[in-house]
Amino acid sequence: HNGKLCKLKGIAPLQLGKCNITGWLLGNPECDSLLPARSWSYIVETPNSENGACYPGDLIDYEELREQLSSVSSLERFEIFPKESSWPNHTFNGVTVSCSHRGKSSFYRNLLWLTKKGDSYPKLTNSYVNNKGKEVLVLWGVHHPSSSDEQQSLYSNGNAYVSVASSNYNRRFTPEIAARPKVRDQHGRMNYYWTLLEPGDTIIFEATGNLIAPWYAFALSRGFESGIITSNASMHECNTKCQTPQGAINSNLPFQNIHPVTIGECPKYVRSTKLRMVTGLRNIPSIQYRGLFGAIAGFIEGGWTGMIDGWYGYHHQNEQGSGYAADQKSTQNAINGITNKVNSVIEKMNTQFTAVGKEFNNLEKRMENLNKKVDDGFLDIWTYNAELLVLLENERTLDFHDLNVKNLYEKVKSQLKNNAKEIGNGCFEFYHKCDNECMESVRNGTYDYPKYSEESKLNREKIDGVKLESMGVYQILAIYSTVASSLVLLVSLGAISFWMCSNGSLQCRICI
């Protein structure tokens, strides 16, 4: 991952900044910058967002509201009850120091605090018919004063009620008058409520006091790749198909172990950190130390980045220098085999997901714990399936590479015959000098055995068991695999060879 928040398929997220979902939807004055928000790819909250409900109280069923919003990608904020005409018999300019803005008392931008007009609070009834052709999110509140005197001074009615009804919602609220500790300079409380109004449905408000009335509502448009994440990451000019709280993932790998919460087309989250597919040879310690064997393909974004291909070729060293050249036929066979294998694994496992966190309130801790156990169970199954699949494929890959290298080895052996000696570690020792032209003939299969047989015969008789390297004779190393990324691999195959001279070296080696 890149540690950044990015656009998702070209669409920017909605960053709530210092506000949370509650503050944004109710219209906390400190969240005025969010009022123009219309569309987004996903919503970003920060872990310690401080601006929620400015007048103390709870947004009821907040967790369910977050779940609903996680599939919303755009909205239209509109005046559901026009301020100047909807409440002619009531005062609608209630403000509070708890919702101060720029040093002055204020109130929510989407709600109206209705109080008595003169000395009376006549029963009010108002309704709205949803003609938007889509779901409408309606929010309101109920004020709970701290004393009967406060109730009387604001609403005149000691036994007030609030009723809200639609086809799918029907509740009646009565204020709970009680002494409470002071929070944000208030002994009173406000509880906030919401409902989704279906197209064509009607919502009716009736009250004799204590109503925090809707002013603006939201017509919602769903987008199934949307979601809500909690993150401290910063926004950058970048684009992605998959976003996590820790950063964007741009990967076609089937798995990731970065974060379980994802938005967009994302690899499946697994616990494993070692889900690797081999593309090189079986481990040979001396070669492995030099980083030549054991190439791997990573299938977990965050564990290993991208696929690494092994390729086969020849390396030689003689009086004229040293050089490398790919054996294109065996390399292409290996590439085709690995590509098919990788595609097979991805096809089997690479279903892209959006995974969002589930919200539970403080009273639902047991449910949250149960949900976590269920999620953990599914996660263990996914991890096991992934590891088992790759384990089985790896064994076949190792066998496949062994065969490829063996074929190259036999190709060289059949040409050199007794003009060189096998020394048991995949290397041959020449009994004759071999210049670049000679080396090329070994690589392309045109090695002239009779041409060098007499010199080889004489050297075999002279050496008589002495280690060949100390006599200045020449080696050919018969097994060799270097490691390159897919891009470098293609470039390498396009070149005939490249040279690395070893000044004054008397050794001649050709490596497979």
Rank of each mutant, 00 (worst) to 15 (best):
V483Q: 00
L416S: 10
R443P: 05
K372D: 10
I463V: 15
T482G: 15
Y409H: 09
R366W: 11
K457T: 12
L253I: 01
Y449S: 11
T279Y: 07
N318T: 04
F428Y: 13
W382E: 10
M367I: 10
V390F: 11
S286R: 14
Q328P: 00
L493S: 05
D380R: 05
E359K: 14
L468Y: 03
A325R: 01
G337I: 13
T331E: 05
Y269N: 04
S456H: 00
T279Q: 12
W304H: 01
L281S: 00
T262I: 10
N394T: 05
I287Y: 07
N250W: 07
I258R: 01
T262Y: 15
W304C: 07
Q415R: 12
Y384H: 10
E364N: 05
Q352V: 10
Q288T: 13
D435P: 13
V356I: 11
N362T: 13
Y452E: 08
K406N: 12
K268A: 10
T383A: 06
N404Y: 04
S502M: 13
R271K: 15
S441W: 00
T305G: 00
Y312M: 10
R443V: 11
Q352H: 12
E429N: 14
E265T: 14
P245D: 04
Y452G: 04
N425R: 12
K457R: 08
H432M: 04
K373Y: 04
K274L: 01
T354Y: 14
Q475R: 07
F360E: 03
D402I: 02
I476Y: 11
A420P: 02
K457L: 08
R276D: 01
Y324A: 00
C501Q: 07
F378K: 05
Q256H: 08
G306V: 04
D448N: 13
N459C: 04
C266V: 10
L477I: 11
N333S: 11
L403E: 08
L398M: 12
T244P: 02
N459P: 00
M439R: 02
V491K: 00
T240Q: 00
G494Y: 06
K329Q: 15
K358M: 09
Y474F: 14
K467I: 05
Q475N: 10
G323K: 06
